[in-house]
Design a protein around this nucleic acid. Structure first.
Lengths: 185, 185
DNA sequence: CACGAAACTGACCGATCGGCCAGATTCTGA
DNA sequence: TCAGAATCTGGCCGATCGGTCAGTTTCGTG
């Protein structure tokens, strides 16, 4: 069971860093100190390995969405806080979905990810919103995802404590999303 | 010369939509109604095709950065406006660099793109900024780039006139970036 | 018309990919 | 102890990739 988890961890890191297509099963096997055939013993295929990695995050996100959909009126500020917590909890998976979702939408699990993001957008009733509102949504969530993904690559990260990141992201998202709820801008 | 430009256009669209690695020269050739060997006649290699597509945008961006670096004091509001205009001008290239830059940093032209983004970050003196300021920068530019890239995929786009996008993005970026310049938050 | 340059093509190459399989090895519990 | 399940491996397969090359067709121009 140890190797099984190691493979998940290693594959996630490699998929996020180098891309799904560019990461071969052989490389994952090498990093884990095993053979390619062994990887395919634990995960029936490369796509199922990806699904195994991404699905838990999608499950959590779907659960949050459904809770809010059945809660009648949606308070954006509530959603934002829980949403940020989920993003931080699965912060390694987020860039994988964001950056490579479009490329991999023929892979079922990534198609599901795209569908979930669409539902988040609908939750904010963005289809009927103004251009300004649509763009605020895009900048907010795209921006958060990108920041989680690429800040380190640009040398902007250092070792920022995660609580600090959390509160800063909450402020930024709140500024971008919540004002549009009540106040006419 | 017509085919040469067609190949650039087709390849850009495919690279952005499906990813560089996932787009084969054969597919580009098919879409252009020619042969793979013909593509490699016009562009010596797949990497050079990518470079040919991305370089003009990088040149423009580098020119803007150098102008501002030699201008002494930087006024963020000036930079933001010119920056947004460049992003919109090259709006097909932006998602290519943003979404696949990390994956392809072994390709010289993409490494150059990453370097340019790092210089933009330095222009904003983000290395010495607070966590809040760093994250604002990440959210702002990542968000804009992601919005240009993926808004359509999530069905948020419709046919928004580009002037409207421009002014909305300017407002959002201004809110995110410029206040930090003078006012202590 | 002629001739060199430019444009184009089909066939082929080595490398790498995901996946399969027969068999070897290790683990586990009656 | 030992049989069966779980785990692991090397070798192989077909497909596809980027790239090369010899040779053909098309084009521009004197």
């Amino acid at each position: 069971m140890a190797l099984h988890d190691d493979l998940r961890t290693i594959a996630l890191a490699e998929f996020a860093a180098s891309g799904y297509a560019a990461t071969s099963l052989q490389r994952i096997a090498d990093l884990a100190g095993t053979s390619k055939a062994s990887v395919l013993y634990h995960f029936a295929s490369k796509e199922l390995l990806l699904a195994d990695i991404v699905s838990p995050a999608l499950d959590d996100m779907e659960r949050l969405i459904e809770t809010l959909e059945h809660a009648g009126g949606l308070r954006r500020s509530d959603f934002v806080e829980q949403f940020v917590d989920l993003l931080l909890l699965h912060r390694e998976v987020v860039p994988l979905v964001i950056n490579q979702g479009a490329t991999l939408d023929d892979v079922p699990v990534m198609h599901r990810a795209t569908e979930i993001m669409r539902r988040v957008a609908e939750l904010f009733r963005l289809a009927s919103g103004s251009t300004m509102e649509k763009l605020r949504f895009g900048v907010a969530f795209g921006g958060v995802a990108y920041t989680l993904a690429a800040a380190e690559r640009l040398g902007l990260s250092g070792e920022i404590p995660i609580d600090e990141v959390r509160s800063a992201l909450l402020l930024i998202l709140h500024d971008l999303l919540v004002p549009a709820e009540s106040a006419a801008h």
